[in-house]
Write a protein that binds this DNA or RNA. Structure first.
Lengths: 331, 331
DNA sequence: TTGTATGCGTTATCAT
DNA sequence: ATGATAACGCATACAA
């Protein structure tokens, strides 16, 4: 069954109010008209329960209020938090959000990017993996955590600075020898800078360090690394920086099996700022990503880009450290 | 700067291919036409990189492929998981998903429901809180976890059965006296049945039980309840069923302060099946909600409802128990 | 089977 | 300031 009888149109409203079509259109769009006309039109709108037809408007203006948000999924808390933050930013600007989960699948990513061409969205904010995406309309596209070149704006955390910060905090908490454990989806992505910042800080501060950095590592990819660095039941290092909170937790499980306790024997810092149940405690000491700021910045860039032909940069937003139980309490 | 030069239209394709407009339309929609025509049209489409204009199509058909999904937020893992599952179901059917986070705000909920009237979405799948929502087009609306009446289909877990199951499992794990701890947003919502199922099972199985059920309880609302049930450092009950996994974790923190250990002194079961990082281990022993099945069912109901005037029921989908560390290992 | 012509509801341009 | 009118791009009933 089709939902109901046909919806009233502007024409119906014009008839009901006894004014011309154009007048109704102006009232609807908030363009000033004579007081008495406005009242008549508004009354008619209410009486008929008129709503503007978004398709017709879109056809005329080539603009709908829809922004496509492209994420690998909504299940991982960081992506969920990002989606949540983007939704807030967008709805504050009166924009609607369409979500496309790509699972990192290049076809799905390309499909979602084409949404603008299909007139299904005005713009796209995307966290993608495929480096070979074709972007037809750069002025309607914002990347998150990935530098795509082609003059496409990228918003990310200050991953490099975060890596440096992790080192400073570990040392501040008493560590004297460090390790980095990380698995990244691509060395070309922004998060790979976490290691670079780590290494830079260690060298600058003259701290001995070791590391394992792999691409798309399987569960437990770091196990051998840890084993090689155990002597007499003790680790060679007393501080570990992991590229994500998730890896901190996985490493902790492994360390537990090795009878090494956190934070007594070794202190750990992760990256993301993931919270239990999305709202509770931190899962570990961590470098917190400014999720809402990332979202706000992406939306601001996009909405500016709608109007002006700016050539935007890479924007790295400040991160901060927070205690979460895997570092020792400071006095 | 406007994105680029004007997009090609069907008319352009028709000219390029040397055929009539209608023929192009048919090819685009996959309606059979003469072989040579089809080839010519397809060639022209590729050459011009033609894409159908979604607004124009929507204006003609009053149908876009957009479904609005209305959730309190994306930050809580259960909602995120639901959003993720719905996204999968919808995209399998070639539908796009628009997300509206309401934060339980009645205005936001009502706004989102009106999306269909505004021709921004074909249908709505919603997890709402406000009992007074006005639904203008019931045939395009599916509720999750809430019975709204007015002939509106509801999809939910078998919350009542889940409550019964929790009791059976606790007893199976050796408990002899139970407690229920729950805070619900509304006694009219489906999740409130978790307590009813619990109580029913306890009575039927002749198990002593106690409970605290509040509406929108603050953090620690159960603390007094627990204190009242401690005698000589021991709890009056050896099994607790909490209405959500989140509450299990909160209660565990409180019990830790009371020097009562889980699962040794008291076993606990939650509800939801929330996983660490959305993908890892369960946070506690729990009744798992069939999130993907809920999503699939909701989408199926909605897409049927597009075509037929069915009068749909309340659908309760089966839940299952899973160990998650807050119950003792069985041999 | 293919082509033609009309209308979907809005916006925007143009006289009035 | 207001009212008539022409697109916008597509789908479809109808004519060929």
């Amino acid at each position: 069954m089709t939902s109901e009888e046909k919806n009233p149109t502007m024409k119906d409203v014009a008839n009901e109010a006894g004014v011309a079509l154009g007048t109704v259109s102006k009232v609807v769009r908030g363009i000033p008209v004579g007081e008495e006309y406005r009242v008549k039109v508004e009354r008619a709108i209410k009486k008929l329960n008129y709503r503007v037809n978004n398709y017709a408007r879109g056809l005329r203006t080539s603009r709908t209020g829809m922004v496509a948000v492209l994420l690998p999924n909504l299940a991982h808390p960081y992506f969920a938090a990002l989606g949540n933050a983007l939704n807030h930013s967008l709805s504050q600007k009166g924009l609607n959000m369409m979500v496309c989960c790509t699972d990192g699948n290049p076809d799905a990513e390309q499909y979602a990017l084409d949404l603008v061409d299909q007139n299904k969205a005005d713009g796209v904010i995307a966290l993608t993996y495929d480096p070979d995406l074709k972007i037809h309309n750069p002025y309607t596209f914002i990347a998150i955590d990935r530098v795509l070149g082609q003059g496409i704006p990228t918003v990310a955390s200050d991953n490099y600075g975060g890596g440096q910060l992790a080192v400073r905090e570990l040392i501040h908490h008493g560590c004297t020898s460090l390790a980095y454990i990380g698995s990244v989806s691509s060395l070309a992505n922004e998060p790979a800078k976490r290691y670079s910042g780590f290494e830079n800080a260690c060298r600058f501060m003259n701290i001995p360090f070791d590391s394992i950095v792999v691409q798309d590592g399987p569960d437990g990819f770091y196990t051998d690394f840890l084993k090689q660095h155990i002597h007499d039941g003790k680790l060679d290092f007393d501080g570990i920086f992991c590229c994500t909170d998730l890896i901190v937790r996985q490493v902790m499980d492994t360390l537990k099996d090795m009878h090494i306790s956190v934070p007594e024997d070794v202190q750990m810092i992760g990256f993301d700022g993931v919270r239990e149940f999305g709202i509770g405690n931190l899962k570990c000491s961590t470098i917190i990503q400014p999720v809402q700021a990332i979202a706000d910045t992406a939306v601001a860039l996009l909405t500016n880009a709608f109007g002006e032909g700016i050539t935007p940069p890479l924007i790295c937003l400040p991160v901060e450290f927070a205690e979460g139980g895997t570092t020792r309490k400071l006095l």
